[in-house]
Simulated assay, not measured.
Amino acid sequence: MDGLSAVLLAAFTALLALAAPLLAGDPDMLQDLCVADYKSLEGPLRLNGFPCKRPENVTATDFFSDVLSLPGNISNPVGSTITAVNVEKVPGLNTLGMSMSRIDYVPWGVNPPHTHPRATEMLFVLEGSLDAGFVTTAGKLFVRTVCKGGVFVFPRGLVHFQKNNGGVPAVAISAFNSQLPGTQSLTEAMLAAFPLEHTDVLVRALQIDGGAPVHVV
């Protein structure tokens, strides 16, 4: 290998090393704003994000939402509900790499184990007290009580949960470094997605009785 080839190879390797960390979040924006144009999604093509509105059609309303000001309707067995403000709700978030959610908990309510495959989450406890924790890929559990005014961070993609540890309602606000972090519930992924002919996979994985069918009511 001549000197020029060696220099080019070294430069290419350095570029790859620099590019790798950039894959950990949404792509950087290359313009002031790119308000999501939902109407353009009717065609067969889809970008990693949403197409941009024409600048002359952008208004201040594209960057506004007040949905976090109201508590969510908690009508489910787990005792929590999530109100999301992401690019699907606020078109002005497109390409900005961030979003938020409000989580309301009934007394002793739980936000069950789940993951966000595209974002790290920072949880701020607005009211009440929560037990918050996550599990690493090595199977280690990190959990602690987070009181009003406290913050807890869930690393990207790791299984995590919260539980209201008091007899009064609790409220938390979550911030994400993605315009659409995605949420995958472990319960739904394991039980609701598996057709009955593949329940043997769950029987072996969860070490449960294979005599009864596994399903979600």
Score class of each variant (00 low, 15 high):
T183Y: 00
M190T: 07
F134Q: 13
A175Q: 04
E56F: 02
P77I: 12
K163M: 13
R102G: 13
P107T: 02
G139C: 07
K89S: 12
S69E: 11
E88G: 14
V87G: 04
V159G: 07
T81E: 12
D131H: 04
H160A: 08
W108I: 00
V85W: 07
E188V: 11
T95C: 00
G128W: 04
K89L: 14
L93K: 07
F142I: 11
T59R: 13
N164R: 04
V143P: 01
G128V: 05
R54P: 01
G133H: 09
E188W: 09
K148A: 11
T95D: 01
S101L: 09
T120E: 10
A170M: 07
K163G: 03
V58G: 07
K163S: 04
T61G: 01
P117Q: 12
F176I: 00
E127I: 10
L158H: 06
M98C: 00
A132R: 05
N86F: 09
A192H: 08
E88P: 02
G128Y: 05
A84D: 11
V151E: 08
K148D: 05
P107I: 00
T61S: 05
V146N: 06
G182P: 10
D66Q: 10
A192C: 00
H160L: 06
A192D: 11
Q184I: 13
N86Y: 08
N76T: 05
P181L: 00
G167I: 01
I74R: 09
L180N: 15
G79L: 01
L70K: 15
K148C: 08
G79E: 04
T120V: 08
V90T: 09
Q162T: 07
D66E: 10
W108C: 00
A193H: 10
G79I: 03
L123F: 08
T183F: 01
N164G: 09
V78W: 05
G149T: 11
M190H: 04
V67C: 03
R144A: 12
R118I: 02
H114F: 02
F134L: 14
A189P: 01
L70S: 15
V168Q: 09
T136H: 13
N57V: 02
Q162V: 00
K140Q: 12
N111E: 02
L93W: 06
V87K: 05
A119K: 01
N165R: 12
T120G: 05
L180Y: 12
F154D: 03
F154G: 02
P155H: 09
E127T: 10
P91V: 06
V159I: 15
F176E: 02
S185W: 04
L186T: 14
N164H: 07
A172M: 07
F152I: 12
R118Q: 10
L93V: 06
V151T: 15
S185P: 04
S65G: 10
L191A: 08
S101D: 13
K140M: 09
F64M: 11
E88L: 13
R54T: 03
L70I: 13
V146M: 06
S75C: 07
F152H: 12
F124E: 04
I82F: 08
D66N: 15
P55H: 03
T83P: 13
